[in-house]
Computed example of a mutant assay.
Amino acid sequence: MARILVTGGAGYIGSHTCLELLHAGHEVIVFDNLSNSCEESLIRVQKLANKALVFVKGDIRDQKGLDQVFQDHSIDAVIHFAGLKAVGESQQIPLTYFDHNIAGSVQLMQSMEKAGVFTLVFSSSATVYDEANISPLNEDMPTGMPSNNYGYTKLIVEQMLQKLAQADARWSIALLRYFNPVGAHKSGQIGEDPQGIPNNLMPYVTQVAVGRREKLSIYGNDYDTVDGTGVRDYIHVVDLANAHLCALNNRLSAQGCRAWNVGTGNGSSVLQVKNTFEQVNGVPVAFEFASRREGDVATSFADNARAIAELGWQPQFTLEDMLADSWNWQKQNPNGFN
């Protein structure tokens, strides 16, 4: 069993990954500035696991604070979630995104190198793929210049990590390219709790269903898809968390830098998600069509064969599971963790 530093571990995907790490017998140290998360998620993770983790409040841009964590704990590997992730906001304040996501990642790599820790799982995104690629997207397809600054920061960090591993054989790095994480832990104790207006489809759907928002806006109904709405690959957050464990195990006994898609390999349209949510949970979701958003492609879903073959990972949950678990979380926590 290993001692794992999880940056951004109090967030949506981070908290679910911490729980799976604890279940698997690892020791977990979370480093998070709580800018888009809260400590309550970690309190609940420890209750669910019936096991303690260490929480250090800190910012990855603070070199001293990071160095201290590596000095205080004999860390074997790092899973790096910390960063800002709102696509729209990234267009308005690009420098803030470059500072947190790019400069923060450089600080982390420097602290790791100083401490002699060279195993890293990086939380990347399918937005790094060139928009001209036709789905299913596979890891050999070219990356492109993402149309938003959030995706751009993910691409830059990926490229830095690839170059780092080429220059220094001690590094062993996994780049996990997520598709669209949804769902929540079966218990309904932890789930997605965005601050302010949600940027992602599922928390918006559940907040409309629970009465926090008036209606869902569906951006674009004139795409060349099954019903005119955008098609995406939705992946259960617990499946995604388990992919991090599989990638971690792979990298603890390998070298170099390797990318893996984490998706189900199936696309669902926004309307299909809304309608299925209503059917599974028996709750209506008011909606309206709005004009397309800049930078949205019609269809994006994964070819996940590489992760299945090389990581021994397999998605377990259906779309119906994802939508039932999302609603279970929201129903139990109408105002999120607060």
Rank of each mutant, 00 (worst) to 15 (best):
R44P: 06
E27K: 14
I43C: 13
N50K: 14
S15R: 07
H26E: 09
H23E: 13
S37Y: 04
D32P: 11
L42Q: 02
L19H: 00
V30L: 12
L22D: 10
G25Q: 04
L34M: 03
S41P: 05
S37M: 06
E20K: 15
L48Q: 05
L19W: 00
G9N: 11
L22R: 07
I43F: 14
S35R: 08
C18P: 02
H16K: 06
Q46R: 05
V30G: 11
D32N: 13
H26Y: 12
D32C: 12
D32S: 14
A24E: 04
E20L: 12
H23N: 14
E27V: 09
R44H: 12
S37K: 01
S41K: 07
G14W: 01
E27T: 12
V28N: 06
E27R: 14
C38K: 14
N33L: 11
Q46N: 06
G25Y: 04
K47V: 11
N50L: 10
I29D: 07
V45I: 01
V30N: 11
T17A: 03
C18E: 00
R44Y: 10
E27P: 05
Q46I: 05
A49H: 01
S15C: 12
A24T: 02
G11S: 01
E39D: 11
G14T: 03
N36L: 12
G9Y: 12
I29R: 05
L22F: 08
G9L: 14
S37T: 07
E39L: 15
L22Y: 06
S41Y: 09
A10H: 03
I13A: 07
C38A: 11
E40T: 14
N50G: 15
E40H: 10
N33E: 08
G11N: 03
L42E: 00
V28D: 07
R44E: 13
L42A: 01
C38G: 13
I13K: 03
R44M: 08
G25N: 07
G8M: 03
R44S: 07
G25W: 06
D32A: 14
R44G: 11
G8C: 02
N50S: 14
E20W: 12
H23K: 15
F31W: 09
N33Q: 10
E39P: 08
T17E: 06
A10N: 05
Y12M: 13
Q46V: 05
C18W: 03
E40N: 10
G8V: 03
L48H: 02
E27W: 10
G8E: 03
N33Y: 09
L19Y: 04
A49Y: 01
E39T: 11
F31K: 09
H16A: 13
I13Q: 04
A24P: 00
S41W: 08
R44F: 09
Q46E: 15
L42K: 01
L42D: 00
S41G: 09
V45G: 00
S15D: 10
G25V: 05
S35Q: 05
K47L: 11
G14M: 03
H16Y: 08
S15Q: 10
I43K: 15
Y12N: 12
H26T: 02
N50Q: 14
H23D: 13
A49D: 00
E40W: 07
E20D: 15
